[in-house]
Simulated scan of single mutants.
Amino acid sequence: MPRIISPLALALIGIILFGDGAYIHAKAWLAQVLLERAFDQSVATGEVVRPWSWADRPVARIEVRRIGARAIVLEGASGQALAFGPGHIRQTADAGERGVAVYAAHRDTHFRFLRNVAIGDLIDVTRSDGKHFRFRADSSAVVRFDASGIDPAARAAELVLATCWPFDAVASGPERYILHATLIGTDE
């Protein structure tokens, strides 16, 4: 009897752990669908539209067309915001403005695509006010979380996408992957 219970218990634990992992990815996917709708309405109407009552405001859409990646960015980078999408780090510039706009997200959900972005790739950012900016990825680095090398006083319009490193790690660590891009065009 104990020989039968052990495999059943292990199978049940495995199913629970798999379900927990699948839930995280399903929540991230559904949140992006709802955020995309709210973002499109914000751009169309000029009004702030939230996908649900307590959600942070969607502020931008990031697209890397070469690899078919896109994500809606939320205002702020709290743990709650990052559960649903990339976050715009407060006290950094808005995309397209002078200075560095910094967006951060989890490596296993919304910024999973960063592993496939190559130097020279075009990154399109559309803000919720409808302004569109095109950046070119020009460098990447792995840095400690407290030593990013990001210059907040940059004179040009720059973009940084940041996530945890290494991409395949299970536990969090002190290193971050930083993808830097420079503004090359605008639809203004």
Rank of each mutant, 00 (worst) to 15 (best):
D129P: 02
A154L: 07
A153G: 06
E158C: 09
S148L: 15
P152C: 07
A156E: 15
F145H: 13
A156P: 02
S139M: 06
A153F: 13
V143D: 00
A157F: 04
A141L: 03
A162C: 07
V142K: 04
A137P: 05
F133T: 00
G130W: 07
R134E: 13
K131C: 06
S139K: 11
S140T: 12
D146K: 04
A162R: 03
A162G: 06
V143K: 12
F133S: 03
S139E: 13
W165H: 15
C164L: 09
F135W: 06
R144W: 03
A137V: 13
L159A: 09
E158N: 12
A153L: 13
C164G: 10
A156K: 11
D151L: 05
F133W: 14
V142H: 06
F135L: 06
V160S: 11
S140P: 00
A162S: 14
P152I: 13
D138M: 02
D129W: 05
D129L: 06
L161P: 03
S139I: 01
S139P: 02
I150S: 05
V143W: 00
A156N: 11
L161S: 03
A141C: 04
A157K: 00
R136E: 15
R144K: 11
D151W: 07
A156T: 15
F133N: 03
W165S: 15
P152F: 08
D138H: 13
W165G: 00
E158F: 02
A137E: 08
D129H: 03
R136Q: 15
G130T: 07
R144M: 06
V160A: 15
H132S: 12
S140L: 06
W165M: 09
I150N: 04
S148D: 05
H132Q: 12
A141W: 03
R144N: 13
R134F: 01
